[in-house]
Design a protein around this nucleic acid. Structure first.
Length: 815
RNA sequence: GCCUGGGUGGUGAAAUUGGUAUACACGAGGGACUUAAAAUCCCUUGACCGUAACAGGUCUUGCCGGUUCGAGUCCGGCCCCAGGCACCA
């Protein structure tokens, strides 16, 4: 027997698979296409992280199993190489991203090769390839052409570390998603996509896709749908102005004792002539707008604010004249930027009213709240209306819409989701394919009236190539480095031909990755972003696996882009990923892996020491895939031993002619069932354990080639190289990875006898072999024949007997 | 504060959804082989009581209570850990 030389045989099979195109599907003719996808990595650091390998392996096992089950599996690989991650890394090590991308590309592909995944190598894509980003830009142009891309000046998140603006989704706890700098607020004019147009659909569709529940919940929270009403408050002596508020509690309108505007609210300036303390008000508003989100949180939700003296609003329900405030607990970006405050029934309003000694009126009475009771906290529970005129006694649900109607308000659904800010003041991304012409703007000749002078780059001129810029580092002036490259930005206006200026900002990296799955099957297509026939055959993605950290980033953007393309008629589905599963996170010996702790696991080292097969199998064995787990060096030895033993057993079978023991044959069928079911639900850890159990049994008895081969097929997705080698040693000529997945025989699953558990008062007393389907009486008789068990029951009065067929018998005895 | 997961031996973790708790593996201890070590193979391994040794018994799935013949699993209350959202009206 040859030694199990994993290094040699892994290399050998990787070469053979590539040469023979083992994992290349036939795109135009595949009968049972199965698109199996893992989120592509961004090559930002020293190399592939073991966490990437964990995720890729889990995806690959699923794909390999599907392939053996008769599907034409497409498992592509590429690099999300454009964007801040890669750019920051290049800056850190002092090279140019253009140069670094080539280095990273080589390194990542090499690493991805040695882990032995069944990738379709011929369909690679890199987001920085002009053949790719040409279509990213095309996508932007489609958005523009259909009114979904627009420019707007507003307060946006600015990362002082990355020196660019960020989308709301990229600000986590007030900090930059990439570099953890505290995000600042800046007033800037930027490009946005109208993702909010799709809020209802993004939410509604969640119920029709098979995704990890935790990701769906995260998206629901992020989209944040609220049902309420718009209600207008007149301003006394100002017929021209009203304050429109959004509220989810119109039923409490009679209790609205003041109104609050966000500091940025336009009315603050419009009413300046009437505001007697305008200086105080505007100072407050200015101070508030400068404070970062982080500072606001740090102030422990202290409710500050200033009254607009000289201005009174009128409560439309009861005609009461009530004060108006500006306060930063009201956000300009949500609803109408103004609220009616009902301190008796809203915690925030309550806190504010307490502090500023404002009156409160109870208008909802629950079971336990008495009418004139002094409130110590806001009552937000259910109940019936009081102090509300003809609405007294109504339930809050009924009163909501009755009162809305009464004051001439309108029902309104409000979303928390905001439009996607896609501009970035960076270098390493696709230039935004837009041109601004001053003279057209002057003559008001823009395609869209609200944005005169802006034109999309004609599609035939795409891509707008990213020029080589030596000084690619962002300067932080709110402009991309491209803004100082005249040769880049000086262009002719596509409309009038005069000198115009190209947009010099680039687009968000998340736009690159929001459509890559559409490109993979069509990477060779030079004429369109994707081939419609191939797309029809292969999409949507059947199985998508990735990190839960992208719940509201990549996964939301991809859904949005897909819906838009569906509406524009480019694709015939509106959800990109039929099934999505989030993999868990790997930690190392109980601690999060991080460079500063020095406990980052480098997969290369482990591949070298133990082989890709052992590492793959260990990663899958250590914990449930969707939960994530703890990587321990010691643990990998168990899997290494397992593979060595598989090797030995396989080699010994090649020579011998023996018959498989009946018990082992039955164990095999149980194992096939377990593996088939567990792989389908991504419970790889229990699959591996079942394979180990089977091997333990098989080694102790006799197993013939046929049964061993079936077992080997179950091993193949986990340890593809050793399985392939043994498969060939046993005399097979074609790849095991195209062999048919074994079927189990139901008749083989049941044993003739089972362990009957005997309990007394629910406590385990013993067990005995009993024939299958034994009756209750038969079981009793059997027990009486057993001295120990009979003794346990001797002299006791049996009240009741619980008999569970083929499992247990429980005697309920009295005292 | 709200929403998700999760809490089981020395460790990573299992448990057919209410029916033998601790599978599978790691580690540890003992033994075989060896000049020796590694590797390999075999045995033991939840805790406590008990016995010369068996036998046998008691306890045990974060804590407290409940339902049930029977609870890691269901119900009620609480405590921790991880992640998400959070002044969203």
């Amino acid at each position: 027997m040859k030694k199990y030389d994993f290094a040699k045989l892994e290399k050998k099979w990787q070469r053979v698979w590539k040469k023979e195109g083992t994992y290349e599907p036939k795109f135009k003719t595949a009968k049972r296409p199965f698109y199996n996808l893992m989120m592509f990595p961004y090559p930002s650091a020293e190399g592939l992280h073991v966490g990437n390998m964990y995720a890729f392996t889990g995806t690959d096992i699923y794909g390999r199993t599907k392939r053996m089950q008769g599907f034409d599996v497409f498992e592509p690989i590429g690099l999300d190489g454009f964007g801040i991650h890669s750019e920051n890394y290049a800056m850190k090590i002092g090279t140019h991203p253009l140069k670094q991308s080539k280095v990273s590309e080589k390194r990542f592909y090499k690493q991805l090769e040695v882990i032995g995944n069944g990738f379709a190598w011929n369909e690679r894509l890199e987001t920085y390839d002009p053949n790719y980003y040409r279509w990213t830009q095309w996508l932007f142009v489609q958005m523009w052409k259909h009114g979904l891309a627009y420019r707007k000046k507003q307060g946006v998140n600015w990362c002082p570390g990355c020196k660019t603006v960020l989308a709301d989704e990229q600000v986590i706890d007030g900090k930059c998603e990439r570099c953890s700098s505290v995000a600042e607020k800046k007033e800037l004019e930027q490009w946005f996509f109208r993702i909010t147009n799709y809020a209802e659909r993004l939410l509604g569709n969640l119920s029709k896709i098979d995704w990890s529940e935790r990701v769906k919940i995260a998206q629901r929270n992020w989209i944040g749908r609220s049902e309420g009403a718009h209600i207008d408050f007149r301003i006394e002596n100002h017929a021209a102005h009203t304050i429109r508020v959004f509220t989810t509690r119109p039923d409490t309108l009679f209790g609205a004792t003041y109104v609050v505007l966000a500091p940025e609210h336009a009315l603050v300036k419009e009413l300046r002539a009437s505001i007697t303390n305008y200086k105080e008000v505007s100072d407050y508003a200015q101070a508030a707008s400068l404070r970062s989100e982080e500072e606001r949180i740090a102030e422990n939700k202290e409710k500050t604010g200033v009254e607009l003296k000289g201005v009174k609003a009128v409560n439309p329900a009861n005609g009461a004249k009530i004060p108006v405030f500006v306060a930063d607990y009201v956000l300009a970006s949500y609803g109408t930027g103004a609220i009616m405050a009902v301190p008796a029934h809203d915690e925030r309003d309550f806190a504010f009213a307490k502090k500023h000694h404002l009156p409160m009126t109870i208008v909802v009475r629950g079971e336990q709240v008495k009418l004139h009771e002094h409130l110590t906290e806001a009552y937000t529970g259910d109940g019936r209306l009081v102090n509300a005129d003809k609405f007294d006694g109504m339930t809050i649900e009924d009163a909501k819409w009755a009162i809305t109607k009464f004051v001439g308000g309108t029902r309104k659904v409000q979303f928390r989701l905001r439009d996607w800010l896609v501009s970035r003041q960076r270098y390493w991304s696709p230039p935004i394919p837009m041109i601004f012409c001053e003279s057209c703007a002057f003559r008001n000749l823009g395609e869209q009236r609200e944005m005169p002078g802006w034109y999309a780059v004609p599609e035939k001129d795409l891509p707008v190539k990213l020029p080589y810029v030596k000084e690619f580092r962002p300067e932080g002036k709110g402009e991309s480095p491209l803004a100082s490259v005249a040769a880049f930005y000086k262009v002719k206006c596509p409309h009038c031909g005069k000198t115009a200026r190209r947009e010099t900002d680039v687009s968000d990296t998340f736009l690159d990755s929001a459509w890559y799955f559409l490109r993979y099957p069509s990477v060779k297509n030079k004429k369109a972003a994707w081939d419609s026939a191939i797309t029809k055959r292969w999409l949507p993605v059947n199985m998508y696996i990735g990190g839960a950290e992208h719940s509201v980033l990549h996964l939301l953007y991809s859904r949005f882009v897909t819906m838009v393309m569906n509406d524009l008629g480019y694709i015939d589905f509106d959800e990109p990923f039929t099934k999505f599963r989030a993999h868990g996170l790997l930690i190392k010996e109980g601690a999060k892996m991080s460079k500063s702790k020095g406990n980052v696991v480098n997969p290369d080292e482990y591949v070298k020491r133990f082989g890709a097969d052992a590492l793959r199998t260990y990663l899958m064995f250590l914990a449930p895939f969707e939960q994530g787990g703890d990587f321990r060096d010691a643990g990998i030895l168990g899997v290494t031993r397992f593979l060595e033993r598989v090797w030995k057993l396989g080699n010994s079978i090649a020579k011998k002619r023996i018959k498989t023991d009946a018990a082992i044959a039955r164990a095999l069928h149980r194992t096939i069932k377990k593996a088939t079911e567990d792989i389908e639900s991504l419970q790889y850890n229990t699959t591996v354990s079942a394979l180990m159990m089977f091997l333990n049994e098989a080694e102790a008895g006799n197993i013939a080639r046929k049964e061993f081969e079936a077992f080997l097929k179950l091993v193949a997705p986990f340890a593809p190289h050793i399985a392939e080698e043994l498969w060939h040693i046993l005399g097979n000529k074609t790849s095991i990875h195209h062999a048919a997945w074994p079927e189990f025989d139901k008749k083989m699953l049941t044993e003739e006898s089972f362990d009957l558990v005997v309990q007394v008062n629910g406590k385990f007393k013993g067990r005995m072999k009993a024939p299958r389907n034994i009756t209750e009486d038969g079981a009793k008789k059997l027990i009486m024949e057993d001295a120990a068990l009979a003794a346990a029951l001797h002299g006791k009065k049996v009240h009741k007997v619980i008999f569970v067929q083929n499992r247990l018998i429980n005697f309920v005895v009295g005292a």
